[in-house]
Amino acid sequence: MRTVTEALYRIFVVVWVGGLLAIGYLAAPVLFASLNDRTLAGEVAGKLFALIGWVGLAAGSYLSLFLIGRWRAAVFKRAVFWLVLLMLGMTAAQLFGIQPLMAQLKLDALPREVMESVLRDRFATWHGVASILYLVESLLGLWLVVWTERGLR
């Protein structure tokens, strides 16, 4: 049974970090480069970011539980555990904090597009915060990939 849980550990790392990179640095830029309608590109990208957020919550939860099960009380001395928790926290902040705030700003701007409204600066600021947080989470994800074996030894 141990090999199944270890395989799932590796799979969740790959799916989470691969998804972060594929959506944030491949799919979203292609959407904005390919579609003339930036609003539509933003809506589709937003749905993709929400999707990878849910994937991240599931993956981060499994990884956390796996590490706790593997290391018990010693898990708090393992850097890989804190890395997973940090990424999980960033995912939750994006999914339950920043994304809903940006969606509300879009609604508050109606009937205009948010970037054509008085809320443009606030939206741009939160978009910048989200982008920086996503970049940091992605870099931490790459670090997690490098450290994957540390969670297993």
Results as ranks from 00 to 15, higher is better:
V145M: 14
V75Y: 03
V4C: 09
G24F: 07
A50R: 09
Y9D: 12
E137R: 14
Y25V: 09
A27Y: 04
F49E: 07
R2N: 12
W143F: 12
L31K: 00
V4G: 04
R78K: 13
G24M: 08
Q94S: 15
W54C: 06
L110W: 01
E137H: 14
A45G: 03
I68W: 06
W126F: 11
V129E: 09
H127W: 03
R78Y: 08
A130K: 07
A41I: 03
V84L: 08
A45D: 01
I68C: 03
M87Q: 12
V75Q: 04
L35A: 00
G19F: 04
A22M: 05
V136Q: 08
E137T: 14
L51F: 05
R78C: 07
N36D: 10
R153T: 07
G60S: 13
Q104G: 06
R10S: 06
E137L: 14
L140S: 02
L20M: 15
R120H: 14
G128R: 02
L21M: 13
I132E: 13
V13T: 13
V4H: 08
W143N: 07
S61Q: 05
V44H: 01
L107M: 05
R10P: 02
L26R: 02
L86T: 15
W82S: 00
L51R: 03
H127I: 02
P111G: 08
E113I: 02
A28Q: 09
W54G: 10
V14G: 11
Y25I: 09
R112E: 12
V15I: 10
L139Q: 11
K106V: 05
L67V: 10
E43M: 01
N36Y: 03
L31T: 02
R78P: 07
A130N: 13
L63H: 04
L152G: 05
S61R: 02
Y25W: 15
L67R: 07
T39W: 01
D37K: 00
A130T: 08
A27H: 01
L86W: 02
L86N: 05
E116R: 00
V14S: 13
L107Y: 00
D108A: 06
A45V: 00
F123N: 00
I98P: 13
V80N: 09
A79G: 11
L20A: 11
T39Y: 01
T91G: 11
R150Q: 09
I132P: 11
L40S: 04
A59K: 13
D121G: 11
L48P: 06
F123A: 03
G128C: 05
A33Q: 07
H127C: 02
F123D: 00
E116S: 02
V44I: 15
W126P: 04
M102C: 11
L144V: 01
